[in-house]
Design a protein around this nucleic acid. Structure first.
Length: 788
DNA sequence: CAGTGAGCGAGCTTCCGCTTGACTT
């Protein structure tokens, strides 16, 4: 007989609490939700007041069985899940599923994992808050109805296996709309003028002053005229303004801000950050990593106080309590912080250490003094000209929290660090050294990164800390958006330099528009977004979730019955689903671009079975070509489409067989006798490549194929070198070689034995959608490298 | 590292939010 069974959500938390509670308490974990709406079908009985049809989730069967047994043997069961909507529902589902008795069940909550907090909770149990549970049921049912009613409309009207949802569809919409803003954007050329001056020599070495002209010049003529004027002009300090300024530290990390900073400072993907944070949490180094709270426990603040005072001194200390401002925050946890504030570093791999160090510094900095600065703005007048140069300098009088941590921002420019200025007074004459005018272009609004999309979703109150990373993965897996790095364009620009007494023009080549790890919408993403915005306007509204949250709050407060909220939503929604199913056309996003100048045949683009294609002609004469990854149906021109249709192109013959050039999913390639060889990026142009160069690619590919091949047997079985080391391939299936065997020494018999044995575990050579297959192999690969 | 296609049938796909291990081509 167990005296007390305590159930929490996370096993790591269970371990900690068990230490505090002693031997009369057994602490177990439910591993989150244990029950959910039926996996198959709608799982909601819309005919009978939306009765939810719950079932124990497949991977929770064993946990539930174990908990049920333990509960039976326990005198008292303490349900200690989080104190938010989901946590309350978990407690209720446990109560129902484990068939607990009201008399022997207690609901408790605590906000800090300390002995005092837990003991206090045990002394103040309450009962399950059914209103809060109902709010969760409403949330769950709403999401199921939206997702499972709209997705089938997409399967029928656009493409199979697509999905729609309250969160993901809006996330995609944000990316699609940003892309269109960028397409509409008209860049403007301008010239930016900067000057280098010398402060007059007062016996010591003269010091340099870098200054800029705040206004930009639109035309070259204006620019050159200005520089010509500067030739003989004199430059005088006309004004010096010095102002004190302070900077405050950023609050401690939440899930969203951690993801943003890890992306900016460490280049981590959102899911990567969460994986590393999970490890740190499991090893006891940090507090819980899925949180929307910036709150620190008194214990944490006190120990931060101690560390700061002891290592940096009292003047660096300024304890603060931060208040969460983000919409829809439920604050079941603390901010993300080190478990022990005195641990500056932890064991673990490089990435774990990097992330920990960032969390450590940010948390300590949040309890440190403001930085005190002095900002100086110097105006430099130009004789005979109305404009003036401006030099800005910043001096840190007291570094405060900056000693520990400096926050990063998305729009930060590398070269904008402030420098110190020499001491200057109004009336000082400056010596002109050099003045430059550089041709520049206005920048379009930035594309979202994974992390900046999370930030945007959070400000809209859409999604939760536990779903930011999965949502971003989902919209990429559905091929609505993709994360890509694109090189941008090289562009010739000009610079005018006034040095000595001469203005010279320098042509320069600069890179513009480089994109790193940005989210780009696909044609399908755009098509689905347009379709949903047209037919399901209210769900695509950026305020849909915020409005739903208001109703959910009313349910939680007992002001509104949950079925009543769902009923109000469902009636018009369902009618709309039916109407759209029946009336709307199948939508391939077809767009006619024009006619082929050679034959007069119509050229159009649309979404085909395997993605966007360009089509020329019809019937027997029809020809297709895939769009390239960076092309969109919305913006492709007739000329670009014609270029795509030039392939495959036959170059000639080699060894009696034709050599052709084509453009596939993975870029341009040459094909010769079953062999595919990629063209060399930046060297070969598929439109102009010569037969000789193509033959060279084929020979190179043969060479590398041979190097890959360790052995080949008579019956076609091969031992190859792959990414994961040597493996066997036979009749389109791959087999792992046991670590105990040396791949280079395998005999034919041994090889065939491995193939036989591996019969069950091997991958089935089934036909799968090529894109889907590529997506799954990609994700497994990512996971493999992560666990390494 | 590997991959370079383009609907016959039948049946499947799908949501959001809690939480961790499985997976080894």
């Amino acid at each position: 007989m167990i005296e007390n069974l305590v159930i929490v959500e996370s096993p790591a938390k269970a371990r900690t609490i068990e230490r505090f509670l002693g031997k009369n308490y057994s602490v177990k974990s439910s591993f989150g939700h244990i029950r959910d709406l039926k996996k198959k079908d709608l799982g909601v009985d819309v005919e009978h007041d939306f009765q939810p049809q719950y079932e124990v989730t497949a991977d929770k069967k064993t946990v539930v069985k174990e908990l049920k047994q333990l509960a039976k043997e326990s005198k008292t069961v303490w349900l200690a899940s989080d104190e938010d909507r989901e946590g309350e529902a978990i407690a209720w589902h446990l109560f129902e599923t484990l068939e607990l008795k009201p008399d022997s069940t207690r609901r408790i909550v605590f906000h800090e994992i300390t002995k005092e907090a837990i003991m206090h909770a045990i002394e103040h149990p309450r009962s399950i808050d059914q209103h809060l549970v109902d709010a969760q049921q409403a949330r769950r049912v709403l999401d199921r109805l939206v997702g499972f009613k709209i997705s089938p409309v997409l399967w029928k009207k656009i493409k199979s296996a697509l999905s729609a949802g309250r969160v993901q569809s809006v996330a995609v919409r944000l990316i699609v709309e940003r892309e269109r803003e960028i397409n509409r954007f008209e860049e403007q050329k301008y010239y930016k003028v900067s000057g280098l001056f010398l402060a007059s020599d007062d016996g010591e070495a003269p010091s340099a002053v870098k200054a800029e002209l705040p206004e930009r010049f639109q035309s070259r003529e204006e620019t050159v005229q200005f520089l010509e004027h500067c030739k003989d002009a004199s430059f005088t300090v006309s004004n010096v303004e010095t102002k004190p300024a302070t900077r405050k530290p950023a609050p401690p990390f939440t899930t969203s801000t951690l993801q943003q900073e890890a992306s900016r400072k460490l280049g981590f993907a959102v899911s990567q950050t969460m994986g590393i944070a999970q490890k740190l949490y499991e090893n006891g180094h940090i507090t819980y990593m899925r949180t929307d709270s910036v709150n620190l426990s008194q214990l944490a603040i006190n120990s931060a106080k101690k560390v700061i005072t002891e290592t940096l001194g009292k003047e660096y200390l300024h304890t603060r309590q931060y208040a969460t401002q983000s919409k829809g925050a439920q604050e079941a946890h603390e901010a993300i912080r080190p478990t022990y504030m005195d641990k500056e570093s932890i064991p673990g791999d490089a990435k774990e250490q990097q992330l920990y160090s960032m969390i450590y510094k940010r948390t300590l900095a949040s309890q440190m003094a403001d930085a005190k600065l002095e900002r100086t703005v110097v105006t430099i007048a130009i004789s005979g000209h109305p404009r003036a140069f401006v030099a800005t300098g910043e001096v840190i009088l007291f570094d405060g929290f900056l000693k520990m941590y400096r926050e990063s921002f998305d729009d930060e420019k590398e070269d904008e660090h402030m420098e110190m200025l020499p001491a200057l007074r109004a009336g000082d004459r400056l010596q002109r050294k050099q003045i430059e005018a550089l041709e520049q272009y206005t920048a379009h609004p930035p594309r979202y990164t994974e992390a900046s999309l999370v930030k945007k979703l959070e400000t809209l109150g859409i999604g939760r800390p536990s779903t930011y990373a999965p949502t971003i993965t989902t919209i990429q897996n559905r091929n609505y958006v993709s994360k890509e790095s694109r090189p941008g364009k090289e562009r010739e620009i000009e610079q005018f330099v006034l040095a000595g007494n001469q203005v010279t023009r320098k042509p320069l080549v600069r890179h513009f528009g480089t994109e790193k790890r940005k989210l780009f919408p696909s044609d399908v993403g755009m098509l689905v977004t347009d379709f949903l915005c047209e037919h399901f306007t209210n769900i695509m509204d950026y305020n849909f979730t915020a409005k739903a949250e208001e109703a959910l709050d009313n349910i939680a407060e007992g002001q509104l019955q949950w079925q009543s909220m769902i009923r109000d939503f469902y009636a018009p929604f369902h009618a709309n689903v039916e109407k759209t199913m029946k009336e709307s056309e199948r939508n391939t996003g077809e767009r006619v671009l024009g006619n082929d100048p050679a034959t007069g045949a119509a050229i159009s683009v649309r979404i085909g079975r395997f993605g966007p294609i360009v089509q020329v002609g019809e019937g027997e004469q029809v020809r297709y070509a895939s769009l390239r990854k960076e092309q969109l149906m919305e913006t492709i021109t007739l000329e670009e489409a014609l270029d795509l249709l030039k392939f495959p192109r036959t170059l000639g013959e080699y060894e009696g067989k034709p050599i052709t050039v084509a453009i596939g999913r993975f870029g341009p390639y040459v094909k010769h006798d079953q062999l595919y060889a990629n063209l060399k990026k930046g060297v070969d142009d598929p439109a102009t490549i010569s037969l000789d160069d193509a033959i060279a690619r084929v020979k190179e590919k043969r060479e590398s194929e041979n190097n890959r091949k360790i052995r080949e047997f008579e019956n076609g079985a091969c031992i190859l070198n792959g990414r994961f080391g040597p493996y066997i391939t036979f009749e389109k299936s791959n087999y792992k070689i046991p670590k105990t065997q040396d791949a280079t020494l395998l005999t034919f018999e041994e090889t065939m034995e491995i193939i036989e044995k591996g019969g069950d575990a091997k991958t089935k050579p089934v036909k799968v959608d090529a894109k889907k297959e590529a997506a799954t192999t990609k994700t497994t690969r990512r996971k493999m490298t992560k666990t390494k």
